[in-house]
Design a protein around this nucleic acid. Structure first.
Lengths: 187, 187
DNA sequence: ACATGCATGTAAAATGTTACATGATTTC
DNA sequence: GAAATCATGTAACATTTTACATGCATGT
């Protein structure tokens, strides 16, 4: 199960389930999503397997938190996962599935659909660009090559997200041109 | 549920569950995957909802087949889905999740991981390029603009797959250069 | 007082994967 | 005769999503 391996990876630094959810939403959103209701049971399972250890943090103020951290056994399990080589993840692009059947709509409706898709993909790209810009500002001159390993590799994945998002925007634009040209040619 | 909508879309042409599985593997693989064990129950559900109708095909030779076709009510449900605008599909890129944690390996192992990822992404791209080339050969001069709607839109999704696959290959190459440069710079 | 954010969880439903079971036909 | 492909399904398991439940703290 990949989710458990990802949690294992993130728990290099001690963190609560809630902290981890925030990481998913901010740093991992471009390749993985997870809900709190999925994270909490997964953490319990990892603890039962001895791969992470949890400690109740005394709440001087605010609600109680359980802080987890990876064990030595957990680090070994993580290295094992990586040593297996790159795994393929299932991709389900609902918007492309819809595009596949756009002949069920008329030309105007189809064009509007692709316009909406373009707007959504531009928004995706914009979000990632803002994150990348903030990262760049925070780092020094030899960016990203001078980053320490534990920031360099996460940054690489952001670049992957950026590259894919840009490709999808460009594709939407081309598709829209084609659809408009069709509409003019036939109508 | 998107799978049911996709089946609904594909059942413009009469087809059996087995036929549909073949379509997933050949024409939809770049954005959606489905197993037979998922397709058969989904077809039964769609039939129970009156969106498709099945007919037992008399098997003169070979095993019995159930041929389904979309009903008028089914076509309305499909149009409805498309009219809701583009839906976002959950993306789970296991290989990027692994890349995120590559600092857990040493520089050589990390480089080998990315090399393997590059090879896998090149293979993805190659598969799609072969499909696109075959499509191009089969069609005439004004390709793809002269295609009928029910082939034009599926072709657009293939182009999306191609664009994303090419972007991921290029990203892997850049990442690999960076990792090798790092290895030389630091030791 | 009320909304928002922090914090942890359970329960139920939906969705997806893997393994199993069956049997005919076609190709080597 | 064996293996691959056609064809349909069930069962068990794993995973993910959505809804619900609880309670503290902070800002308006």
């Amino acid at each position: 199960m990949s989710l458990k391996h990802i949690l294992l990876g993130l728990l290099r630094q001690p963190a609560s389930g809630y902290d981890l959810k925030r990481e998913f939403d901010t740093s991992l959103a471009h390749f993985w999503a997870a809900e709190l209701s999925q994270i909490y049971p997964a953490l319990k399972q990892l603890e039962a397997e001895g791969l992470i250890a949890g400690k109740e943090a005394a709440p001087s103020l605010g609600p109680a938190r359980v802080i987890y951290k990876r064990t030595a056994k957990g680090s070994a399990a993580l290295a094992d996962w990586l040593a297996q080589g790159p795994k393929r993840g299932a991709q389900r692009h609902t918007d492309l599935a819809q595009t596949f059947f756009l002949d069920a709509l008329n030309a105007d409706e189809a064009a509007r659909f692709v316009e909406a898709m373009l707007a959504a993909r531009r928004e995706d790209l914009h979000v990632l660009q803002k994150i990348a810009a903030a990262w760049k500002r925070a780092a020094g001159a030899a960016f990203p090559d001078a980053l320490p390993d534990d920031e360099f590799y996460p940054y690489l994945t952001l670049e992957a997200g950026l590259a894919v998002a840009a490709a999808r925007v460009a594709w939407c634009e081309r598709a829209l041109h084609r659809i408009r040209k069709r509409r003019n040619d036939t109508g």
